[in-house]
Design a protein around this nucleic acid. Structure first.
Lengths: 327, 327
DNA sequence: GTGCACTATGACAACGTTGTCTCCACCCGG
DNA sequence: CCGGGTGGAGACAACGTTGTCATAGTGCAC
């Protein structure tokens, strides 16, 4: 900046005035300055600017389990859209379902003085966030609630969705329904299992724990579960996949099976409609999830001091075929 | 920081020493300082630190067409992995295939003093990058080359891949092959079309322009193309989808067709193996693309001054069924 | 000619850090 | 008792900006 000032024969303050479009600069001077800027390829240093002005950095942080998972990348996109409309940029990070990594990312983002943080929490301990939030960094939890603090949260109706799935299968005559969920440490997985149980009760089906499998989904693990739960004389005639990862592995495990149970998945996914049979799912609007969370965050950024809010977004069953077959 | 210093009864420089783990601080003093930090919830301001030290900001920028597209989110993930290993964080942005937006994002990132930029370019004009690159911000182009400047680039073998696709179909007896590509303004689309043409020549098939359709893929447009190219007496017996978006729309358009042509897609995608028939694709390792680009970027960040490099990653055909049917 | 408002510009401090230099107290060997 | 080394700590400037205030020059009404 001082180089530009020297070249243009003005003070550095005048350069500042020009780059900030402040009035009260003579057009000729402004032009000289612009020329110097052009010639030297000057860009103002936003870091220094933010420091001096004490203003916000114009960035927000987004922490998800894995930015490469289509579910989270759709969320990412929705968040980015809102951020852009508020003139902010997005720092992203993958926690890999590891709470230490989550914490590391959050603190790093705070040190960078992001204007706010959106997080799909991996752990259940969020006390470390209290000083940050008190220091004025708003935090909104997405898809899963905070472990041990009260904070803004946007969720989907996991319970209602799974109940609906069970009811749907029961309506088509199924009495033995298996549930394959993600690790029970994950809020959504636990909640959906709760919904499964509740759904059984409401439909007069005795809840059978031996038809439930909760584990981080890998092809191998799901394959084993399929062998165990969907074969033999007492096999389940229908299965619910607890999330999109489980669903994909399950579909692959069933691909060459002689017998295909009825199936409903939680979370919609691309091409579900083109499979044979098309996959019935409990769908929810991931974009809406990101949208709502980001809107809430920016309300906080702009000074909204109202009590922490909890938003629960609706889900709906999309019947495509796989869930409508009789036992 | 001065608050911490006051509370601990030391100078602010000593606080700095403590937070930076510098030696030559008395353990008792350090403990007092730590306690004060804890009590006040102090976090050092990374912006100010970077300003003072003149060091890098520890961030890199990644610009893709759409962070929500699974192809780019996988790329994003690979980039993040490398960035993390270098202790950097990633700012992401979607250009939406709009070169003005791309430019805006790049300049914004530069103003934030990112250590480097990875970009899947939307436009063909990159002169605006010259001052930035001269100022020391390395830029690596991913998936598509820079329009009018020489710069590091990582591509996949679009030409070879499409030739292979044509050859594969020809080997299975097809002589009338349609090509559905993305907008010809996009480098990869144009390059794959070139490969299609070359593939026809090499296999003694006369290149028929009426069997080619190049357009931003929408369900409607692909549906029309299918009606036009794959019906009637002179219809194509096989079709090549120019990228993953085209493939998905094409599959949907063909889902309920009475006649299914043979098909090969460029870009692999999830569940391609579970469709009926499973989709034969020209696959390439998207993670490797991000990996290679990020590695190259960090080499530059760390001072590698060698001439700009152009890396072309191999592709390979994955025969799954859809491409192995006779006319 | 004097006073006043107004325009265009500059000097300087400050944002929150850290690098450099200096200072003081203490210990040790001679 | 003195000189020199060492360990611990502070004063100060500087990073690249911008907000505040001051200044010089101009035009205009009295």
């Amino acid at each position: 900046m001082s180089d530009v000032a020297r070249l243009a024969g003005v003070s550095i303050k005048t350069v500042s005035r020009v780059v900030n479009d402040e009035p009260a600069v003579h057009p000729d001077t402004a032009e000289r300055v612009m020329a110097a800027i052009e010639q030297l390829g000057f860009r103002r240093n936003l870091g220094a600017r933010n420091l001096r002005r004490g203003s916000t950095t114009g960035t927000i942080g987004l922490i998800v389990e894995d930015v490469g998972n289509p579910f989270y990348s759709e969320l990412n996109r929705a968040v980015e859209r809102i951020a852009t409309s508020f003139g902010r940029q997005v720092l992203t990070g993958s926690s890999e379902e590891n709470s230490d990594r989550e914490r590391e990312l959050v603190l790093e983002f705070c040190a960078r003085r992001v204007d706010g943080i959106l997080v799909v929490p991996a752990g259940l301990q969020h006390g470390y966030l209290v000083p940050e939030m008190r220091a004025g960094t708003p935090v909104v939890f997405i898809d899963r609630p905070a472990g041990d603090i009260v904070a803004d949260t946007v969720l989907v109706d996991n319970l209602g969705g799974t109940i609906e799935a069970v009811t749907h299968l029961a309506k088509h005559g199924h009495r033995r329904i298996a549930f394959l969920g993600d690790s029970p440490d994950i809020f959504t997985a636990a909640e959906r299992l709760r919904g499964f149980r509740e759904g059984c009760v409401r439909n007069g089906i005795s809840y059978d724990e031996s038809l439930v499998s909760m584990h981080t989904p890998t092809q191998e693990f799901i394959g084993d579960a399929v062998k165990r739960l969907l074969h033999g004389p007492d096999a389940a005639t229908a299965v619910i996949a607890g999330n999109n990862r489980v669903a994909v592995h399950l579909l692959r495990a069933l691909a060459h099976a002689e017998y295909r149970p009825a199936m409903v998945g939680f979370d919609d996914f691309e091409l579900a409609d083109l499979l044979d049979p098309p996959v019935t799912v409990i769908a929810h609007d991931v974009s809406a999830l990101g949208h709502a969370a980001a809107e809430l965050l920016f309300a906080r950024v702009q000074g909204d001091q109202s009590p922490p809010r909890k938003v629960v977004l609706p889900v709906h069953l999309v019947a495509r075929g796989s869930g409508e077959v009789a036992p």
